[in-house]
Design a protein around this nucleic acid. Structure first.
Lengths: 335, 335
DNA sequence: CTGAAAGCGCTAACAG
DNA sequence: CTGTTAGCGCTTTCAG
């Protein structure tokens, strides 16, 4: 592995000149040419570690996501990756596993590795803590999940509006008892989606107590969705439709329905977020489409601005969802 | 951000002592205690960039996978991650997108960032090139896909055996015309799985020419699987069963079958590798289970040995698959 | 436009 | 067991 001084010696110039050639400093054309030539011959490429140490900043950004097995987050990750590639930033993907400790460990690493910045889909609304990064001036962008009171830029989905619309759709189609399976109580996404559901149900005339009885919190995973659905089906007066607040829990809910011999659309089911391999599900599922990829792109753009030193006031970008009605919510008569 | 000298000064010791405290050198208990104390107060954590520059090795390893949206690779990634966490290595995930250029770019980054080592599921058997890393002494472990002639450790799945067994299972169940959808011609996994299929078919008495006519190469993605299945169904004498060489193509094949109104198990279908959300598919799918997670763990273990400086001869670890017969291959009579 | 020199923060000999 | 010292490879003043 040749170094900058090897190149300098071989080209008969100073290391500083070589450095300038690779960093856009002013160097005479012929020297530039010679240095490039020699560098190519020697297979030289600048050592980023040394550069980071010297400049105190890296060309790597961290992306913390809570579940690498959820297609929503992989799509988001691709958005971040694609947008970053254009700026020559490389992306380090960290899977926090919905675990605040693990997340904290990765945030420490980001700090110790002097990463240029971090994009986080926070594991917990209350307990995720970015203050250490913020204090040391490392740019942070929150994505998908809004951490409480953290002073960072954010890119969010319009959860409440999307859920409200989705729930209203179920009501419109004639379902009488629309239940809700939402995520863990700590997460902003859970709460906002629940709030949308509640708003729509109140508007449809449901009492708060009734709503509470037909609401379940689960873990945003398949398993949790299944269990919650089983509980709802076991109610004295079971629901005839369900609004499920994320994709994986919908998969679980579908399993529970199948086991119970309940078939959409006589039982309505609507998923907030695309269900993976939706094409395998019959009947086709009504979903609220989330702009996962664009969320990633927007977050990366915001982060890049900050890395470049922008001191605009903090922004929150909100992206809209889109309701895709399909057969799974055709109506209780099973049209 | 406090440095090692800040801590040294505040604790009244030398920087070397602080360093030793954090790296397991011999330091008297009371000093160790004091240093730890002071470090905690100052919120000190060692700067990994400086450490890497000094020691010429990093505590980061790269993991290059061809498709982050394939659950097989995410499971593999988790294996790598879990195994690495125990050794305090952090994992950088790079999505090569089955693209040799993109892969090469990431490999360059690995080099420039002085990563401790790299685990690669190669994008191409022929064109993926690790020689630059090997030359510079960076440990590389190939996983899942065997790059041609590269002198690296490898962790593989017993593709040929698994495919042979799977195909024989279809034949045993009474299917007469078993077709095959395999992956791109370049990949070792495609070729080995195809070889297993061929061996079983020959043993069942099929002519080479017949086998060729009932074989399709696709791209390991959903789309490719669908197209290939459509082609097979359009043959003058369509197959009555198919062996599909990866999970995503199976999803595509199922879509094509559904559109054509063909239902397993009267048409047999068997997937090499677990199909995501298999529980949504009806009837339940017969699969060859792959040890994706363990593949990751084994690769990480091998890499760690090399990073630690082992100069054992190169090894190839082969993990076995397991056939899980389910209803989708119950037999042409549709028992 | 170019070179010399001074570190970034850390670790690894080497002496003590 | 502890401190001193000399860099890892690079960038960035500061002179020239």
């Amino acid at each position: 592995m040749s170094t900058i001084s090897d190149v300098a010696r071989a080209a008969g110039v100073s290391p500083a000149t070589v450095s300038r050639v690779f960093n856009g400093g002013r160097v005479s054309p012929e020297r530039t040419e010679r240095v490039r030539q020699v560098a190519a011959e020697l297979g030289f490429s600048p050592n980023r570690v040394a550069r980071s140490l010297r400049t105190q900043r890296a060309s790597v950004i961290g992306l913390m996501i809570p579940d690498i097995e959820n297609p929503f987050f992989t799509a988001l990750a691709r958005g971040v990756e694609d947008a970053s590639q254009r700026t020559n930033l490389s992306v380090v993907l960290c899977n926090t596993d919905e675990d605040v400790e693990k997340e904290a460990r990765y945030l420490d690493i980001a700090l110790a590795e002097q990463m240029a910045g971090v994009i986080v889909a926070a594991a917990s609304r209350r307990r995720s803590d970015f203050s250490a990064l913020a204090e040391r001036g490392m740019p942070v962008v929150a994505v998908d999940r809004r951490p409480r009171a953290a002073m960072v830029d954010a890119v969010m989905v319009d959860n409440q509006h999307g859920s409200d619309e989705a729930t209203a759709h179920l009501v419109d189609r004639g379902y009488q008892r629309v239940a809700c399976i939402t995520g863990p109580a700590g997460a902003s996404t859970s709460e906002e989606r629940l709030a949308g559901y509640r708003a729509a149900m109140r508007e449809a005339g449901a009492a708060d107590e009734w709503i509470r009885a037909y609401t379940r919190h689960a873990d945003f995973r398949v398993e949790g969705g299944r269990t919650a659905m089983e509980e709802l089906l076991a109610l004295p007066e079971p629901p005839d439709a369900v609004f499920v607040a994320n994709n994986l829990m919908t998969v679980g809910a579908l399993q529970a329905l199948r086991v119970a011999g309940v078939e959409p659309p006589s039982f309505g089911i609507l998923s907030f977020g695309d269900v993976p391999w939706a094409s395998l599900v019959r009947p086709p599922l009504t979903t609220v489409q989330l702009p996962a990829y664009d969320l990633g792109v927007a977050a990366a753009a915001l982060l890049q601005e900050r890395i470049a030193g922008s001191d605009k006031p903090l922004q929150t970008v909100v992206l809209r969802t889109a309701l895709r009605p399909r057969a799974s919510t055709a109506g209780p008569e099973g049209e």
